[in-house]
Each structure stands twice: as C-alpha cells, then as structure tokens.
Design a protein around this nucleic acid. Structure first.
Lengths: 115, 115
DNA sequence: CAATTATATAAGCAAGCACTTATATATATA
DNA sequence: TATATATATAAGTGCTTGCTTATATAATTG
C-alpha cells in the first residue's frame, strides 16, 4: 500500500484558494506542459499586463510556479520541487490540456521562445 | 493508457475556490470517511451554527456534499455521484484523515448517530 | 544615451466573502 | 399544545480580492 505525504489544511487551503480563480487556474494549466513568459500569458488570456503580473506573483509566493529571467523576459513554469506540487499535479490532471493555445501563438508568430 | 474526464476551468475553479477555505476544507475532510450532522460539525470545528450552516449550503450548491434529513438532524456526506467528485477525491487524499476528531466526539458522548 | 519592450509596483475602487446577531422554520417530546 | 433542539435565513459589517490606471524598473537596441 502506498501512502502520500499529507499537507496541512492551513497550507493546502492557500493553494486551493489560489487555484480557485479562473485566470490563475488557466495560467497553471498552461504552464503544466510548457514554459511561458508573462507577455505570452497576457496574449493568450487576453488580460492586462498588470493583472497577469499580480496573479503570477501570488502563484510564485505560494511556490506553485517558478520564474527564470532570460533577457527582458520572465519565463514561468510550474514549481515541481515544491512540497505542494503533488497536490497541484493531482488537481491539474482534471483540466484539459492547453497545448493548442500555445500552438496558436506559434502560428501567429507571437511565441517568444521561438525568437 | 488511462484517460480522465476533464472538467472545464469555469466549473473547476468554483470547486477549488470553495475548498480554498480552511473551514470548508475541514468539513469535506471530515465527511470523506464519515457522515456527520451539522451540529457535530459545529462541535468539532468550534464555530457558530449559522457559519457552519452557510458553509454547508455552499458545498451543497456546488455538489460537493449531499444532505439527508433524519428527524431533526441533517446528515451531510460527500456527494460521490457528482461530476466533480473525482477532482474532490484527488484533492482530499492529500490531507490528513480526521477520524480521530469523530472518535473524540463519540468518547464525549456527543455523537448524534450513536443515539 | 535615447527609445523601445517587458515586467513590477502602487494606489484606488467595487464586488465578494466570512463572519456576526437576530430571527424564522422544522422536528421531537413532554 | 408548549417547550426544546436542530437548522436555515436575513441583514449588517469589516476584510479580502481582482481589477483598473498610472508610474517605476529593468533589459535591449539603434
């Protein structure tokens, strides 16, 4: 029998509250399979840059996502080293993949990492 | 390869937002292994009756929990028939079991279903 | 160095939320 | 039928949240 490391309710509820927002859930869903920079998220989600920036900041604070700077861009990805990653992963498998959204960006020539 | 029925972001974020509250997360965690009536939740969580009642109402509206009236008591349990149950289950396995909380109630003679 | 592009931050605001207190409803029982 | 117990609901309140606009910072490029 396999056992899972449990997360305490206090910490877990913070993660769930953060993922309980459509925009943030979409961001994490996008990042599950690809690295994305903030400007790509702005493009895909059709939201203002400050709004996306604030959401990413919250996700980072909760260790749900990680950032990496490359030149003027900040690339975001899911923080797979975090204590809460197993919870995040368990949740995200229930949502549709977003690969096409990123494919669409590539087709439009708006994908940053293609430069 | 096994596939999972996906949930749309709109619907899923509602579930996550609801579970993103410490009290509601505790309620669902308690209900994962036992049926409980509202007054037992009030006792265990040490919160006011209206507050618990309002939380349960929200969980019911989102089809996370179900109710069953027996006399003057309303017994709550997790709605395992719901479309979103697989998501709920995936989440709840990450939190510690709450069986002892209910055992404690039994010891104190406050368990309703023992009557 | 000036202009451009990407991102972050600050301040303000309207909506949502979780509680409270007071009261209503529903069932059980003497 | 009156009282007690369980639960629901309504209204009020302060805190939180997600956006907006404006501005700051940081890296790039001509």
């Amino acid at each position: 029998m396999t056992t899972i490391n449990t997360i305490d309710v206090e910490k877990g509820s913070i993660v769930l509250k953060l993922l309980g927002d459509k925009t943030r859930l979409s961001i994490v869903s996008l990042l599950m399979h690809d690295e994305c920079c903030v400007c790509e998220l702005v493009e895909i989600l059709e939201m203002s840059q400050p709004s996306i920036s604030q959401h990413v900041k919250k996700l980072k604070a909760a260790e749900i996502v990680k950032e990496r700077r490359q030149g003027q861009w900040i690339f975001c990805r899911v923080n797979t080293e975090s204590e809460i990653f197993s919870l995040v992963k368990s949740i995200m498998i229930h949502f549709p993949e977003q690969r096409e959204k990123i494919k669409d960006l590539e087709i439009k020539g708006l994908r940053v990492c293609c430069n």
